[in-house]
Design a protein around this nucleic acid. Sequence first.
DNA 1: ATATATGCAAAGGATTTGCAGCTAC
DNA 2: GTAGCTGCAAATCCTTTGCATATAT
Lengths: 144, 144
Amino acid sequence: MTDTALLDKFKIALKKEGLKNTPQRVAVLEEIIKDEGHRESEEIYLALKNQGRHVSRATVYRTMDILVSNGFARKLNLGDGRARYESKVNSPHHDHLVCIDCGLIIEFMDQEIEDIQEEIADQHDFVLKRHIHQLFGLCKTCQK
Amino acid sequence: MTDTALLDKFKIALKKEGLKNTPQRVAVLEEIIKDEGHRESEEIYLALKNQGRHVSRATVYRTMDILVSNGFARKLNLGDGRARYESKVNSPHHDHLVCIDCGLIIEFMDQEIEDIQEEIADQHDFVLKRHIHQLFGLCKTCQK
DNA sequence: ATATATGCAAAGGATTTGCAGCTAC
DNA sequence: GTAGCTGCAAATCCTTTGCATATAT
């Protein structure tokens, strides 16, 4: 998706919810999609600050919620008590393999697991909405 | 495992780590294994309190860490910002299917997923230590 | 014009920690 | 006897919220 197409899509999503198209919201969106990373709110707040785009912490938090609920970002929980965010724009679904020593994050996707998950949900009469699947271990370097 | 066998195992685990076998620690262990549930520290604290076994919140938290790192309990993160604990004693490995509306938790285990996880780790030269796998959706009742 | 956003600082909730007194070994 | 524990309250960390001011539509 081009940047202008994305911004249009964002404006439409905001309008649909009766929300305003503010420069702060655009700044947060632009920041989250610029990077392949898995960053916490504080990192996004600081990245913006370093670019001279002063968006308050509160607005970063509030905007992340909007981005997540409208499918622009995904919220991750890596078990350390802080929420991480990653862009969902131009990024296919995947889960994460995390090194418990150095924090290295590798993305993976396995269609067979995806399918089995749906089967399990079906068997229990659940309609699946989302899932968390994270593998924790030691990467090659940290095994030594 | 019988209760005495479990207590012996616990004492050995404590000794191995240079920790003392205190009544508070035993109380927390007994409380966590008595129940099939997925409870937070506060619930465990209150359950003990209601039995007249006064263990402070701080000690509950500190003991949960010991139980988790010694394989007596598992720490869950259901994404609501509070840690949950479940007994690992007499309980085979499983993951969780959670209703996002009513909180119903169903345990599941799929050997194929377990195997694929190992393969994924292998492919990336990781040694797997643990994983989080939770499916979130709507249960039969909450779909209506 | 006015409904909604922002920024700030204060509040909140879960968890951790410092410390003085207590207890297992 | 002493290293390690407990309980308390204070501290900490991330996140949310109230409110006065500012802004998008």
